[in-house]
């Protein structure tokens, strides 16, 4: 059904435009069900975290954190490249703190602050504004919704963790007089920093999404997360000095993240001692930053999985009860 109205301008019928009111049109196209619904929630989550399609205020915090990390890695890459170019391998060794391990050891804090500020954007407003109800009356279960949001935040976290590492790698490779030789000698750094980045991102995502899922206000979730990062760290610090009580440190998020990072890059103390006996030669510019973990890998793995799985499971169960 259509109505047409002819508008004539200046009395010239040829100049007239035709306006069609096509009325309401029923939709006869494809309906792609849950797959499309999950993808839409995932895409929306990704955009929300980074403030894409929003004003400058929404972009300020996430991009400031990202630029800070990229800026630091650029400085480190420049320092490493400058030392390498001017003084060769000895020069690179003289510039400590330019390793991939070192970059993670302090960027974990920035990553956590990023998560504390950004993760609440994904779950808190939907619950606070009541938008969650609109999701749940669509072909989407509460589990689909929370899994899609979780995956969106994990994607952002992994990207944010890896980006500075790639910048550092590019700087170190390009700073070396023989880039391919550098890559040949240090290629194992790449899987290590990819694994370490994914591990840090997954755990931080799990914890921050749980806090965001339980709080209705973004501010509460952010404060809770910062407290979760800082307070246990301070409480468990004295126990780390006593080898018998080191397990207490596994309740500290910061310690678990830091020690996991050490384990991935530098292995354990026992392995390091064994390696030193077998291979005392120069192993690359990371040597000065190589501090192996003092913890048992089993304990560390158990603690890591506990911090990863428990918050994820609690969040999932919490949302699952919202739909039958």
């Amino acid at each position: 059904m259509s109505d047409a109205t002819t508008a004539k301008a200046g009395g010239d019928p040829k100049a007239g435009g035709v306006v069609f009111d096509i009325r309401y049109q029923r939709y006869g196209g494809p309906r792609e069900g849950r797959r499309r619904a999950r993808l839409a929630v995932y895409k929306d989550g990704f955009r929300k975290v980074l403030g894409l399609g929003r004003g400058a205020r929404a972009k300020l915090l996430p991009w400031a954190c990202i630029l800070l990390m990229v800026g630091i890695s650029t400085v480190l890459a420049s320092m490493a490249g400058f030392g390498q170019r001017t003084l060769g391998d000895v020069g690179a060794e003289m510039v400590p703190g330019t390793s991939h391990y070192f970059l993670y050891s302090f960027s974990i804090t920035i990553l956590f602050v990023f998560a504390a500020l950004m993760a609440p954007r994904l779950l808190c407003p939907d619950r606070r504004n009541g938008t969650l109800h609109l999701y749940l009356v669509r072909p989407l279960t509460a589990s689909d919704y929370v899994q899609a949001r979780w995956a969106a935040f994990l994607t952002v976290m992994v990207s944010v963790a890896w980006l500075p590492q790639f910048v550092l790698l590019a700087g170190r490779v390009l700073g070396h007089p023989e880039p391919l030789a550098y890559l040949d000698a240090n290629w194992t750094d790449i899987p290590k920093f990819l694994l370490a980045g994914a591990a840090v991102a997954a755990m931080v995502t799990a914890v921050s999404m749980l806090a965001s899922g339980l709080a209705t206000r973004r501010g509460y979730a952010s404060v809770l997360l910062i407290a979760l990062f800082v307070v246990p760290n301070a409480v468990t610090a004295p126990f780390a000095l006593n080898p018998q009580l080191q397990w207490v440190s596994m309740f500290s998020l910061g310690d678990v993240l830091g020690e996991t990072n050490k384990l991935i890059f530098n292995g354990t103390e026992q392995a390091a001692e064994a390696g030193a006996q077998v291979e005392p030669a120069f192993r690359g510019p990371d040597d000065m930053d190589s501090v192996p973990t003092q913890f048992s890998p089993r304990l560390l793995l158990a603690a890591y999985l506990g911090w990863l799985i428990a918050p994820g499971a609690i969040l999932w169960m919490y949302y699952r009860r919202l739909t039958p």
Binding site: P30, E32, R36, A58, N129, G130, T131, L134
Partner: peptide, 21 residues
């Protein structure tokens, strides 16, 4: 139930996608 910071066009487009379009 509306997110106050989003424009209506974007919100509706998102809701249509969540409905499977």
């Amino acid at each position: 139930c509306l997110p106050f910071e989003a424009p209506a066009a974007e919100f509706l487009c998102h809701m249509a996608e969540v409905s499977g379009l």
